[in-house]
């Protein structure tokens, strides 16, 4: 009888095959994929971009750990998901934003949006984007300072307005119905591709973001369904309804400007806040694309990517419900019946 005590038997329900890929490894891949964009941000805006990103990462990790310690929940700091949120939030802020402002954004993203709803896997909005939306709501003046790229910022506590040479962004030109290279920003197409434009730190360089996105797809971290449908919808709509210039020019300008690349590859593909069914992903991408184009064309502010993704985040449960794949061996009618019954039991 004695040997039973030495056997460490775990009783668990299926699945019994564990995956070697954990949250930490996935998040590490995302961080690696974000590195080219960070390099471009530092190259164009100076070391302050790096410092802001670092502050944001540390802030996110500390807020997460503090919340979990204070509420006596298991501390989950090792999974790096807060670090990714920190990097992404820094990437969607202008380089002149004061350090304290980004910390407030971190607090909102991690504590209010993520942890209050139950932590990793339970938040229904993308924390980084919700943090950005909150900052845009509360600190609009700080969030809308666009500097000319090449204006190097050192580590100054607050980048004073005198340093900040305000520059028109390609986004603002597009919003006013001008092609960037003919508008007030005077940015040419290849500048937009490399990232030599005014804008949020991590959003400017389409090239670096494409590199990162390609890496994630090759590594199998994200599936190309959401990015391709998202970018494809925006491209198609821009191609069909150009406001000025030729269709191709307008389409390329729309694709390469603002936060579209960052949003399509890194924000919309967030596991937690995107659908887990293939058709759900396709609909999600198309919805993001439609909303982005609508918000950019008819909205009050120039950019619409963050709100488009946030709105689609809120639709995810609905998309998943109506795109459930057919269960093996189940007929369509049976499945509909099962779904209805689920509704009655409040599982819908």
């Amino acid at each position: 009888m004695k040997e039973y005590a030495d056997l460490k038997l775990t009783v668990a329900s299926s699945p019994h095959v564990g995956s070697p890929v954990g949250t930490r490894a996935l998040m590490m891949d995302v961080l690696v994929a974000l590195t080219p964009a960070l390099c471009m941000a530092v190259f164009f805006f100076g070391p302050r971009a790096l410092a802001l990103t670092a502050v944001s990462v540390v802030g996110c990790e500390i807020f997460e750990a503090l919340y979990r310690i204070l509420l006596k929940k298991p501390v989950s700091g090792g999974d790096l998901s807060a670090a990714v949120t920190g990097v992404l939030l820094a990437f969607v802020c202008p380089v002149t934003i004061p350090y304290w402002t980004i910390l407030i954004g971190d607090f909102f993203a991690i504590v209010v949006v993520k942890q209050l709803f139950g932590g990793l896997g339970k938040n229904f909005l993308n924390p980084a984007l919700a943090g950005r939306a909150f900052l845009a709501l509360c600190y609009l003046p700080e969030m809308t300072v666009w500097v000319r790229p090449g204006t190097k910022f050192w580590l100054g506590l607050t980048a004073s307005a005198a340093d900040a040479v305000s520059a028109a962004t390609p986004m603002a030109d597009l919003h006013n119905g001008l092609l960037p290279w003919l508008g007030t920003s005077g940015v040419r197409l290849h500048d937009m591709f490399y990232g030599n434009v005014g804008g949020c730190m991590g959003e400017v360089s389409a090239l670096a973001l494409l590199f990162g996105g390609g890496y994630l797809i090759l590594r199998g971290v994200i599936h190309p369904r959401i990015p391709t449908t998202y970018l494809g919808t925006v491209a198609l709509l821009a191609f069909l309804f150009p406001r000025v210039g030729s269709a191709e020019d307008w389409m390329l300008a729309q694709l390469l400007s603002g936060g579209l690349m960052l949003g399509a590859f890194f924000m919309a593909t967030d596991y937690v806040t995107s659908p887990c069914t293939p058709w759900g992903e396709v609909l999600f991408g198309v919805g993001c694309g439609l909303l982005t184009v609508f918000l950019r064309s008819f909205g009050g502010s120039a950019e619409g990517v963050s709100y488009a993704i946030l709105l689609m985040n809120a639709c995810v449960p609905l998309l998943e419900k109506y795109t459930q794949p057919k269960r093996y061996g189940a007929s369509r009618g049976w499945q509909r019946k099962a779904r209805k019954e689920g509704e009655h039991h409040g599982k819908g």
């Binding site: 304290w100 407030i104 209010v112 209050l116 909150f134 709501l137 509360c138 600190y139």
Partner: peptide
């Protein structure tokens, strides 16, 4: 200048009341 002005707006009402 450090205050989160958005909380005085209706959105802030929803956020704070929910909390």
């Amino acid at each position: 200048q450090f205050a989160a002005g958005g909380l005085v707006h209706p959105v802030g009402g929803f956020l704070v009341l929910a909390c």
